Simulated assay, not measured.
Amino acid sequence: MLSKKISNITPSYTIGISTKITELKKQGIDIINLSIGEPDFFTPKKAKEEGIKAIHDNKTKYDAASGLKNLKKVIQEKLEMENNISYDLDEIVISSGAKHAITNTLIAFLDPGDEVIIPKPYWVSYSEMVKLLDGVPIFVDTDRQNDFKITASDLEKTISPKTKLLFITNPSNPTGAVYQKKELMSIVDICYENNVHIIADEIYEKICYTNNFVSIASLSEKAKEITITINGLSKSAAMTGWRIGYSACKKEIATAIATIQGHLVSHPSTISQWAAYGALTLCKNEMEEMVKIYKNRRDKVILELSKVSNLSFIKPQGAFYIFIDISKLKNKIQYKNSFSIEFSNKLLDKYKVAVVPGIAFGMDDYIRISYACNINDVIEGINRLNKFIEDLNS
């Protein structure tokens, strides 16, 4: 009775790992969880207070489908001041998380059979979202020497008459790579020439350890014309459970997105929107402090991982993940379908460390660890990973 498309969808690897960790913890087993893609900080106090105030002020009625005007104004100001992009209020749509903003965009663009280019490695849900909307994900292999960032040459070889969209995740999940201005400009040129729009997923934008983060839409008027900027508060303000994201794009696309959202969910929780308003207007210092802590953790994790034999990794310039190459250990483990899944399962079952297998991101010779958790836990997890590798080699 279920639709055929459901049978073509791969269950979320990360949710599967979380479920297994929960079951093990219920049994009283100590697990070092390096799989989580969620800040270990709590939502800043003043953001929570704005949410509480909204409840007491009875700001709990229906509002505009595209989001609260007050929140859209501060997002508008943020985009102009921090990203050098000017949008009208009706070009901004508040959604129930960045994932929802991406889904709205895909619905607005895709007809059955339309192609969406997804560079590898990719965030786990991109391909499944595209398939759910009857689109065709087109995966592009990228070069490790370029930190797995897609190039103009890669793009030219992949674009077809059916190509509608390109995903660019910047900074990247899972690698933490950050695109440079020159790299993005050449990508924009090719997309513009071929009438391909860019979904610029910039959810990790604030968690960037370089001083040269560039939003794609800021590059030029033609870049802005073909770019749908996706962002939100989940990562930057530790507001994962509040579910507030947004898209910003030219009016024609934004109107379509708002119409879609109006029919499907109306609008995000008004209470969450007021909390997001508080985060953007009152919590800048707290957000900057989180980034300082992430950077400090990153430096310590890199130092510890560098001591582990038979591993290599991409040095992250943003986000809070490290993508680790485990291919030198491939002949040490027997596996049927997926090397990274078997590796991750053994690491969890015997050494009680949870990581995400690289196959979740389209690359089976890797695992991803997160340092969005207590640094002592991360270092202990790396020590256990080192012990696992030593045992494999003995």
Results as ranks from 00 to 15, higher is better:
D143M: 08
Q145V: 06
A152Y: 05
V136L: 02
T142L: 09
F148L: 08
R144F: 15
D147T: 13
D143G: 07
F139I: 00
S127I: 05
D134C: 01
L132W: 12
D154H: 09
K131Q: 08
F148M: 05
I150C: 02
M129Q: 10
L155A: 14
Q145Y: 14
R144T: 09
G135S: 05
S125N: 06
F139R: 00
G135P: 06
D141S: 14
L155N: 08
N146W: 04
M129I: 11
T151E: 08
E128H: 10
D143I: 11
P137K: 06
I150N: 04
N146F: 08
G135K: 08
K157D: 11
K157T: 10
S153V: 05
R144Q: 11
V136M: 04
E128Y: 01
L133R: 12
D147M: 13
D143L: 03
D154T: 03
S153G: 01
I150A: 07
S153H: 07
V140T: 10
V136K: 13
K149M: 11
D154G: 13
I150K: 04
D147A: 15
M129W: 02
N146R: 08
K131W: 03
K131I: 12
S127N: 05
D134N: 12
D154P: 13
E128D: 14
S153E: 14
K131M: 05
S125P: 03
I150S: 06
D141Q: 03
V130A: 10
N146A: 12
S125Q: 10
T151Q: 11
V130W: 06
D134L: 08
P137L: 02
L133F: 02
L155V: 07
I150F: 02
D141R: 03
Y126E: 13
A152N: 15
I138E: 09
D134P: 01
D141E: 12
T151M: 04
D134H: 09
T151C: 10
Y126N: 15
L155I: 12
I138A: 00
T142C: 09
N146H: 11
K131F: 01
F139P: 00
K157P: 05
V140L: 00
S127F: 00
L132I: 09
F148I: 02
L133D: 02
K149S: 08
I138F: 01
V136P: 01
T142I: 10
I138H: 06
S127W: 00
R144Y: 15
A152L: 07
K131A: 10
L155R: 11
